[in-house]
Design a binder for these strands. Structure first.
Lengths: 199, 199
DNA sequence: ACCTGAACACCGTTCAAGT
DNA sequence: ACCTGAACACCGTTCAAGT
């Protein structure tokens, strides 16, 4: 056995991450395993450790790809430079829309937890920051005279709020009594928050 | 072997759930396993299935106990019937305070996902609803003339927002750049949202 | 009736051995 | 250098066998 060389390291990484995404989208993060991934791409389990340090490393890299796709959606939503109040709503709706279409991959970002003491790589943090700045930019345009720290705080509160609506909206355990859609709840949160903020 | 009868069924359930909570608080939900639980209480793994249908059942029952403690904290925070605007802030701070002191048990409520197709028992849903109504009550007092559906929507948006701040605040992966505390971000969200809502 | 412990099908990870 | 597959220490779950 050994030595097939049908794929380069980079190709192997690519097809492994693709297989992982398919598994997660079909069965959720808990349906992912090293053995299932290699089974899907025609390798044996040992070969996965040529490419990834461990299964957490694979998941983090998969999540970074999800963040890339999410960032693409968000930046496309404000590419035509609408007025900031419109842009903020467009960002929120794009976030929801991504969560609705790529639910399991989106959930995996928040479900996955590194072992205690381990931190996510810098590349991951940068992708989060980049996404966050998209919101901050629009809030700065909306209120150009506010202090940057205030805008940063406002962006964090707002984005956390939208995320909270999404995450609870998808959690059937916590599905509130009234059957309002995630979009409606988000619109409501945004309207009241922005009214308060811009006042 | 067999037949020790040192504990009643109910006692066994109690010490198993206690052991589970200790394990989760020490090592997080992923540090929980059936074998670790029984090891801690001096039984063997098979005996766990006399009491619980499976490990998910055990986790759901553990989470219900966490919801009970959380409800206790929240209702205590508004027991002296402060004015509604104060009460809402007190509820938010009590939620944060619970998340800060019982972080791992609180997180377990949201981390745990039943296998596809399975639903949480009614007793669980009731505990969530009961907690939710605490917020709704205060919003009703704050705006007695609004329609009930509007208040329900407002409560859901608000509570989702507060939860979002908490959950992202604890996720070091997404820890925003500016080092604001969860309390500060929540206060900010609340202030702006309530300003918009009561206007 | 209660409880054990072996058995089964999984898991992540390592590593000697093969090409 | 690349890849395998057995090995190890874990998992959840079942169930015949013991008291």
């Amino acid at each position: 056995m050994g030595r097939r060389n049908t794929h380069t390291r980079e190709e192997l990484r690519e097809i492994a991450l693709q297989a992982a995404e398919e598994l997660v989208q079909a069965q959720g993060l808990s349906g992912l395993s090293a053995r299932k991934v290699v089974n899907r791409i025609g390798y044996t389990v040992g070969s996965l450790y040529m490419i990834f340090n461990n299964i957490d490393d694979l998941i983090v890299q998969m999540n970074e790809r999800t963040l890339d796709r999410l960032y693409g959606m968000l930046s496309a939503a404000v590419a035509d430079q609408p007025p900031p109040a419109t842009a903020i709503r467009a960002l929120a709706q794009a976030y929801i829309s991504f969560a609705l279409t790529e639910t399991q991959c989106w959930l995996a970002i928040y479900q996955h937890r590194l072992p205690k003491g381990e931190a996510v790589p810098d590349s991951f943090t940068e992708k989060v920051t980049r996404m966050f700045e998209l919101v901050q930019q629009q809030l700065t345009l909306l209120c150009p005279r506010r202090r940057p720290e205030e805008v940063a705080l406002a962006a964090r509160a707002l984005w956390s709020g939208i995320h909270g609506v999404c995450i609870l909206g998808f959690d059937q355990k916590l599905e509130a009594v009234g059957g309002r859609s995630i979009q409606e709840v988000t619109e409501w949160l945004l309207d009241n928050y922005l009214t308060g903020f811009t006042q």
